[in-house]
Nucleic acid binder design. Structure first.
Lengths: 336, 336
DNA sequence: AAATCTTTTGCAACGCGTTTCAGAAACATC
DNA sequence: GATGTTTCTGAAACGCGTTGCAAAAGATTT
């Protein structure tokens, strides 16, 4: 075990008394090699704990079987990190990649991610890129896609996007939330979220759409929330309540954290929830189910999301130009 | 942009009218190359968006500048995933690795991770391994370490561990929780956690230690919780309450999720929290601060954790045998 | 047994940087 | 101007698999 030089394919070849190409072919289960030879080579390789040097391999082949995944954790300074949902999404992607025997190179984008991503790609660090959370980088991503950079993005598809986007059916999500609130006899709705993000705008649109088709007059407010932390949401809720003459009776928040923050702020202001105000969140993060009150929310299937993201990317790698896709989106009703 | 053949170092050499080795040295900022030449080469390389083929590079050099990180998400079937704290830890590790220009290869261990890990290492997929959550795999890890497999583990150090372990000061964490509960005049404590995990045993020990040094008689119960999901914890809490004649007035749970589950179960049983029972969790996950009631908990500094894990591993890679280390551990008191 | 076709195997080249070592160029010393 | 140093550059080899192609071995046909 303690040889200082790593064991190579040449060693295996010598031990098996065949040539190096034969070993290579045997390990790759090539039909060119006789079964008996294959067995012998494999046995010897196993016995010696041989593993192909993947850099030599990747150098020669042109595929690296590695997918870069970009996930914005948020910075140390900001302190707060991505929505817990992103973790589940990462989990789904990880599983899907694992099933396809692809390595997962995790990248936390920094200030100039453009350069970083390009570098990874140009240097053959990965065959393609999965971006979890496009944020406001649509232009960059479009530019990437234009230069045949294989990528797939989690989010909402822009009309002019020339790359494949996989995401929750945000419009439907908004509709589901809207219908739920209207069914609860709510008439004055509040949407909480930064509509400069395409996903969040679609959720708002879905809400508005349902409200407009409703036979009664529905009032819809909107609070633009530019910071994703709980504390910022809480503060925003406070300010909103201070400024508003009458408070809404239904809230649809762009994520569960914001929903929880608004619930807390409203409660702290003496408003009863769920009696006076119904609230719907988004993502069904783990704590949503046991928040007090249990949070009604919109769930996305993160495992399906992972699978779809990965399979789309594989098609991109094959030269296809797959269509964007929507992930199963459903209301999880937790009214007590 | 659309040449089908990727640009190589030879191309840059030709364009800069120097030899390939000179380009290599210029890109690596070697003192052997004249500054003027360096500038010229770099300019040309930049202009053409050249990036070193990292597989050729890694093949030749013996370091890959890649660190594998093993993170157990839990399986699709189980559905539930790792503690949110793991996400923060991953974030910390990611940041620390990024600062050192190391790539992060994310591995979700499967049924036979032993083989998987070995393969990664033997195949030069990574220089070393960071294991987030050793679980019950101490033997495997010991075996790994014995064969000069560079690894660092997040968790608690076993007496016989021959690898470096970085983790929260679990004993201190238990003490902090214990002191907090005793300060609140609690006399009948309950520890919730699977003490077959070394970390969780230490937390229990810390609690017991403080109780024993206390001038009054303290009763300590223990519930072994083998499933990490909220629902399982809730069920366990229910069963515990059904079986117990009198309930405890202080709870220390091995993580925040379990703490929340116990709080909910106790409340659902008509027990007032925090009036009747004080509860302390562990990890300070994002939702802890805005759970109702706000959860008092033990916080670990995940960024420091990431930094320490990475720097220890770097020392292992340099042939050192660094000592295990404890991470800053503090009580976050959120009594209202 | 010779001729033909298949199935297996091996030689040599290749992919793309890095490193060793020798040699050229530039500069200093006498 | 000859000699010795120091600084810089390039030729060639190397790291380790994979692949094109030719050759060997074996099977089949005549």
């Amino acid at each position: 075990m303690s040889e200082n030089r790593a064991i190579t394919m040449d060693d295996i070849a010598r031990l098996a008394k065949v040539s190096k190409p034969t070993v290579s072919r045997a390990l790759n289960d090539s039909p060119l090699v006789k079964q008996a030879t294959k067995n012998r080579v494999l046995a010897i390789a196993n016995k010696h704990g041989y593993a192909v040097n993947r850099h030599a391999q990747k150098l020669r082949r042109k595929r690296t079987n590695t997918i870069a995944v970009s996930l914005d954790f948020g910075s140390h300074q900001q302190g707060h990190i991505a929505d817990p949902f992103m973790f589940e999404l990462l989990s789904g992607v990880s599983e899907a990649l694992g099933n396809l025997n692809q390595d997962l190179l995790l990248c936390a984008p920094t200030h100039n991610d453009t350069e970083a991503f390009r570098k990874i790609f140009w240097s053959r660090g990965a065959d393609g890129l999965i971006v979890l959370g496009q944020g406001h980088r649509e232009d960059m991503l479009n530019e990437f896609a234009a230069t045949a950079f294989p990528l797939v993005v989690w989010g909402a598809s822009a009309p002019n996007a020339n790359y494949c986007v996989v995401g929750s059916d945000n419009f439907l999500g908004g509709q589901l939330a809207g219908r739920y609130l209207l069914r609860k006899q709510r008439r004055h709705l509040l949407y909480v979220g930064d509509t400069s993000f395409r996903e969040l705008k679609l959720r708002f649109d879905g809400l508005v759409n349902v409200a407009h088709e409703y036979p009664h007059d529905i009032e819809i407010d909107r609070v633009e929330l530019h910071n994703f932390s709980y504390d910022a949401a809480y503060e925003t809720a406070k300010r909103y309540l201070d400024a508003a003459k009458n408070h809404p009776d239904g809230i649809f928040a762009f994520n569960d954290t914001a929903a929880m923050a608004f619930i807390s702020a409203f409660r702290d202001a003496g408003i009863r929830i769920p009696e006076d105000v119904s609230v719907v969140g988004y993502n069904d993060i783990p704590t949503a189910a046991y928040f007090t009150p249990n949070l009604t929310t919109i769930r996305q299937d993160c495992y399906q999301a992972g699978r779809v993201l990965v399979s789309k990317l594989m098609r991109v790698l094959d030269g296809d130009k797959p269509k964007s896709a929507l992930i199963k989106t459903e209301l999880i009703c937790r009214e007590t």
